[in-house]
Design a protein around this nucleic acid. Structure first.
Lengths: 372, 372
DNA sequence: CTTCAAATCTGTAACGATACAGGTGCGATG
DNA sequence: CATCGCACCTGTATCGTTACAGATTTGAAG
């Protein structure tokens, strides 16, 4: 057996005279170290005179390493700025230290991605996790990115949104045991981590507010029917109608996933009809914009002919149309909750403890500043 | 020499009788294969009867592999859905297949992240690259994420934004030879890939438009002075003032990085003063909102007392304030350009060929749909 | 003066891929 | 019939890390 430059045992082909006088205790100690390269366990092993294994275990605070040794190793590691090589860890253990955010490319329409990414990274910043954004285009391909992640082991945890009552992604992830969290709930009897906005309550409170303003013929701009929060929002809307005695005006042909132009045109028709509502609940902030446009094209005016309550993930409406009563959906906070939940799931916390609902509240008007 | 279960040569400690009769040609062929696990080169080697090295080189289309062999390997690889293990490649070659998008957490204010991420992922989807979002908080820490990426080799390419004329990030990345692209230009004599919006032209055209409307006392809501595009926008503004004979009204105490409330309040004061402008150029869409609010608090009206041109990365303004003339900054396209440029840089294309400027154009008003 | 267990430490193999430095076989050449 | 070059294929070592199965030392027990 001969030794190569850095002390690993070489091939078994004999070469006379190459066996050095090194005793076994220092057999695989690194003999040379690359110069300006980043430090590895080998570097620390060299500096401390310990074996690579020992260093690895010391940094992991393993029970079979002496207290003083651990201290020494930690000190050196810190001094030279050691950071474990992610590829090494990943190859050996399968741990990727990656959280994957799975997005529809179409999701940007709602402008939701941005604060969400910020919220997630705020949490991940304090952890070894990186955020990888994984997109998919067509709705039918929703499973594709999930399969990719499962097949290639691309992430330790996944964040998905736009959940459906029976969501195949949730089924697949659960079956394969990959930790995940959903933005939105499901109804398939699977207990899993989620964060959601309480859309039932939003719609209910919206109806209450509109009725308090004397409005009785209400319309709802709803989510697309296949998403879970469609039924939440509808349920809240209808409960409100019952409790506060108002009537629904039908507007089912249109939903928040339609283009602004479509929403506007459909709403203009409605507002010109005999069936025109006098109160609007808008399930999305951008949808509200289109509704306002349609309303104005029908020569109606907010506050006078009609009042409106809208969900709003941004400040635009409040600034430009203070007449619209808004309930703020804080996507950034949602991102934070989602990140905490996936990590919790990865760490083995029970799913029941990783579920949260954010309660809608009406926003105060913008402060009027200097002089009112 | 003995063989372990999967045919790798074992340690040199002799164990009698374990040497099989295998000839050297098949010495390191895999003997067993894990069951439902994902395929590796070993799997393909086993299926084709070739060596692991051969398979690796065949998939790389190396010149020393026979045409038929390549065909066979490719076929099998495709059949079983082989995808190279990223950790393996990364560990061995250092290639991460990662593009890092470096963002300020504060960037979300401008709502810019979302379409940008979408644009980038659209391009990356057709490549082996993943997008990792790397945030940093304080402005003084702008170098921290860059250093992290350099020190840990976390990415093959980097996308940064909010460039300064003398940007230390650009200096560092160039010095260390890590491919990158900037959203915005620099002025340090370093030729590097960039994509930028032509802010000079934007401001110039804005002034032209306002003067054409008879406005002569113009104000500019400008970017923060330390960013490169501050001077671009100012230059265009001033060139416009000269060419079209208008005057500047000073508003330097405030810029687009300030809060909407600050902008509004400062602008209200200005509009109430004797020095009130009659034309506004807004360097940001959200800034425009605040300006409008301030203007209205000063009891002035758009179109009557004042006209306004604004840069706008979204549709909100156009829908809610059609009186505002907007030039669209397509962030999604910017994301696409940036992604293409980093990849080009990684592939060794010369930096000069990876620079692009997006030309501003006035947006048409929203189509009025059914009946006008 | 063994023997044994506890406390520490360590070498080897392996994860999956690739660079490198050989093999092997075959037909052409002398 | 050696020899050579070419076309093709292959083993070994290695990237950085960790699981596993030993080593070694120490001191107490017998």
């Amino acid at each position: 057996m001969r030794l190569t430059a850095d002390g690993q045992t070489g091939s078994a082909q004999e070469e006379s005279g190459r066996v050095t006088a090194m005793d076994s205790k220092t057999k695989n100690r690194p003999q040379t170290l690359p110069d300006g390269a980043r430090p590895t366990l080998k570097t620390i092993a060299f500096m401390t005179g310990l074996g690579i294994t020992t260093v690895s275990r010391a940094l992991k605070d393993a029970p079979d390493i002496g207290a003083e040794t651990k201290e020494r190793v930690r000190l050196v590691a810190k001094q030279i700025g050691y950071q474990p090589n992610r590829a090494g860890v990943r190859l050996r253990t399968g741990k990727t230290n990656v959280i994957s955010l799975v997005l529809t490319l179409e999701e940007e329409i709602m402008g939701i991605t941005s604060p969400m990414v910020v919220g997630i990274t705020e949490i991940l910043a304090g952890t070894p996790y990186h955020l990888v954004v994984t997109p998919y285009s067509a709705v039918k391909d929703a499973l594709a990115p999930i399969r990719y992640i499962l097949d290639t082991g691309a992430a330790d945890g996944v964040i998905i949104s736009r959940t459906e009552p029976h969501d195949p992604r949730v089924a697949l992830l659960t079956e394969r045991g990959l930790p995940f969290v959903t933005h939105g709930r499901t109804e398939m009897g699977i207990v899993h981590p989620y964060h959601d906005f309480d859309n039932e309550r939003f719609a209910y409170e919206a109806v209450r507010k509109l009725v308090a303003r004397g409005r009785r013929r209400l319309v709802l701009l709803e989510p697309p029917p296949h998403l879970t929060f469609y039924s939440h929002m509808r349920a809240g809307f209808e409960r409100g109608l019952r409790d506060f005695q108002a009537d629904a005006v039908s507007f089912h042909q249109t939903n928040i996933d339609h283009s602004l132009v479509e929403i506007r045109d459909a709403f203009e028709v409605l507002m010109r009809s005999d069936d025109a509502p006098d109160g609007i609940v808008s399930g999305s902030g951008s949808g509200a914009i289109a509704l306002i446009a349609g309303l104005e094209m029908a020569k109606k005016k907010l506050t006078e002919d009609c009042d409106m309550v809208s969900k709003s993930p941004s400040d635009f409406l409040r600034w430009l149309r203070p007449e619209v009563m808004t309930m703020y959906e804080d996507i950034r906070v949602a991102g934070r909750e989602l990140a905490k939940a996936v990590i919790g799931h990865i760490d083995g916390q029970p799913a029941e403890t990783l579920q949260s609902l954010s309660q809608p509240e009406f926003q105060p008007p913008i402060t009027r500043g200097l002089r009112a």
